[in-house]
Design a protein around this nucleic acid. Structure first.
Lengths: 301, 301
DNA sequence: GAGGATTATGAATTTGTCTCACATTGGCGA
DNA sequence: TCGCCAATGTGAGACAAATTCATAATCCTC
C-alpha cells in the first residue's frame, strides 16, 4: 500500500472543503481527477475512506484516522519547503565550525553569541573531535568552516585571514628565563613545556621553534584549557608558548613574564577556511566580519 | 515544490546505504532511476541535497535537514499502513457510542472497561451531546453504536436487543403513594417528578404514562445523575420513574418504595443499534455479548 | 418528481517514472 | 600520472499513473 503526500492533501482538502467538488476546486484540479484519486486510494487501503450514504461525502472512521495523520505530517512538509525557500534566499543555512586552534575557543564564543542573534535561522554548531582531518571534512560538507593557521592551498577552499599573532613565550617571573630579552630554541632544553594535548605539528612551539632547531625540551605536559596552562605556568611548573592575545590578562600580572620568540619574532596568521561557494553567502560574510572585529578587540585587551 | 514520500524514502536509503548504487539495490530499482529521482528532487528543491565532490555521494546540509524530516515522518506512515492492515483483518476499528438512555452510563462503564482490555486497538469513545439525532449520525458514520429503547425501522441499521426492563416508580416511603399497590398516570397529578434533563419524548414516564393519559404533574425538576435523582427522591422532594435495575440498591432500603406502573406494567426493551455491515465485525459482536452479560448481572443485582 | 448539485465512470491525453545502454567522473594503486 | 574500477550521470524509449473531458448516475431539495 502506498500512501502519498498527495493523498494526505486530498483527504484534508475534502474534509475542510466539505465535499469532493469543492475540494477539487481548492486544489486546482477537476472533480473527476479527485474522484479517481480517492477511488485508487481506497482501493489500495482496501477499505472505504469516505461515507457516500449522504451526499457531500464525509470521512469514515478509517478516513478520519488518515486525516489525523495528515494534520500531523503536512505542516512539517510545508515547514521544510519554506525552510528551503529561506535557504535559497540566503537567510538560512548551516555553520558548523571546527577549530584547529585550541586557544581560540575563548575568542570564538562571543563571536558565535553575536552571530546567533543576527542569524537565528542558521544552524550553528562547534564540531569537536575531528580537528585532525578538518580539510577533507570541509570538502565533504560535513563542516562549513575551519579555524586554522595553516593555509594549505586546497582547491575549492577559501582562506579568509582573521588576525595576526605572535606565538609568545610565557613563564613564571620566578623562572631564570625571565632575565632574557627574548627566547630561543636552546632555552627550552632545561624547561618543561606545557601545551594543549594535540600532536606536535599543530603546536607553534614545535613547528616554529623546537622542531626546526632539533631541540627536545626537558619535559612536556599537556592541559586542555588555556586557564589551566596559565595556572601551571604561574606556579612555575613549566613554560608555554601561546598567542600573544591570549595573555592579555596575564601581562599585567607581576607573577608572569612574557617574552618574544627571538631574535626575529615569528608572525603567524589565523584563517577561517570555507568552501569557495559558501564564502559569498551573506551569513558567512557576516560571520567573518564579526570574527575579525572580535579579534581586534581581543588584541587590544 | 512537491516533496513526496518516495523522496523521503530515497533520502533515507541513500544515507543508510552510504551511496546511490547500494540504495538502489536496497529499494529494488536501478541506480539510474534513483539518479533521475534525486536529480528531479534537487531541481525542485532548488539546491543540492547531496555532495558529489567525494565519490560515494553524501548528504549536504539541506539533505540532512530532509533526512531528519524523513526519520520523523516515515515511521508514522508505516504505522498507519499497519493500522489499516489491522483494520482490514478486524483487530482494529472504531467504537464511538451514544446513549439515548441516560440511566445507562452506570451500566456501560464496566462493559467498556472489559471491552478495552480485550480489544486494545479499537478506538473507544462515548460521544455525548448528539443524542438527539443519533440515528442519522449513525448512518453518516459519525458514531458506530447507539443505545436506545426505540427501534425505529431504519434501513441499514440493526437493532440488537440487550435487555428488558420495567420503567418503575420510586418514591420516598414517606410519600402517600407508598400505600398503593401500583401507580397510574392520575397519581402523578399531585407529585413533583424528577427526570433527567432531556426532552419528554425520551422519558419513559412521559412516553408511556403521562402523555398518553394527558396528565400533567404538579411539578417537574431535573437532575443529571441517577444518584442525585435517587437522593432527591429519598428526601421526598419528588418521585421518579426509572428502569427497575437502576434501583437494585435502593430496593433493600426502608427509605424508598418501588412500585410497578400498573395495572399492566409496561415492559420495555433496550437495544444497541449498529450499522448492518458493522454487526458482523468480531469486536462489535464481542461488545454486544459483553453488554448483555453485564446487563444480566445488573438485573440480578 | 423535476432540477440542481454532487459524485462516478470511461476513454483519451498528458505527465511522470522507470529501465536500458552508455557516457562521465572520481578514487586509487602501479 | 596513467589507467582501471567503482560510482554516478544522461538520453531515449517503454511503461505506468494521473489528469482531463464528456457524460452518466445519484442524491437532495423544493
Amino acid at each position: 500500500m502506498y500512501i502519498e503526500i498527495r493523498h494526505l492533501r486530498t483527504i484534508r482538502a475534502i474534509h475542510t472543503a466539505g465535499g469532493l467538488a469543492r475540494a477539487a476546486e481548492m486544489m486546482n484540479m477537476t472533480q473527476s481527477a479527485l474522484s479517481h484519486q480517492v477511488a485508487g486510494l481506497e482501493d489500495q487501503a482496501g477499505m472505504e475512506l469516505f461515507v457516500r450514504r449522504s451526499k457531500p461525502m464525509r470521512l469514515s472512521a478509517a478516513g478520519f484516522r488518515m486525516l489525523k495523520l495528515a494534520d500531523r505530517i503536512l505542516p512539517e512538509i510545508d515547514a521544510l519547503e519554506e525552510e528551503f525557500i529561506a535557504l535559497r534566499s540566503g537567510k538560512s543555512g548551516r555553520l558548523h565550525i571546527t577549530l584547529e586552534c585550541h586557544a581560540c575557543y575563548d575568542w570564538l564564543f562571543p563571536v558565535l553569541e553575536m552571530f546567533r542573534r543576527a542569524w537565528p535561522e542558521v544552524d550553528v554548531d562547534i564540531r569537536a573531535g575531528l580537528a585532525f582531518d578538518a580539510m577533507p571534512a570541509l570538502n565533504r560538507e560535513e563542516i562549513d568552516l575551519v579555524i586554522t593557521s595553516d593555509p594549505g592551498s586546497q582547491n575549492g577552499v577559501t582562506f579568509n585571514p582573521l588576525f595576526d599573532y605572535h606565538p609568545t613565550f610565557v613563564a613564571s617571573s620566578q623562572n631564570p628565563l625571565a632575565a632574557k630579552e627574548f627566547i630561543q630554541a636552546e632555552d627550552f632544553r632545561d624547561q618543561v613545556v606545557i601545551t594543549y594535548p594535540v600532536s606536535r605539528d599543530r603546536l607553534d612551539l614545535f613547528t616554529e621553534v623546537l622542531t626546526p632547531a632539533k631541540v627536545e625540551p626537558r619535559g612536556h605536559r599537556t592541559a586542555e584549557l588555556t586557564a589551566v596552562i596559565l595556572m601551571l605556568v604561574g606556579s612555575n611548573r613549566g613554560v608555554a608558548v601561546l598567542p600573544d592575545w591570549v595573555m592579555r590578562e596575564v601581562r599585567s600580572s607581576s607573577d608572569y613574564v612574557t617574552r618574544p620568540l627571538g631574535p626575529d619574532p615569528v608572525l603567524k596568521r589565523m584563517y577561517a577556511a570555507t568552501r569557495e561557494e559558501d564564502s559569498t553567502r551573506p551569513y558567512m560574510a557576516h560571520f567573518l566580519r564579526l570574527a575579525r572585529i572580535e579579534a581586534v578587540r581581543l588584541q587590544r585587551g
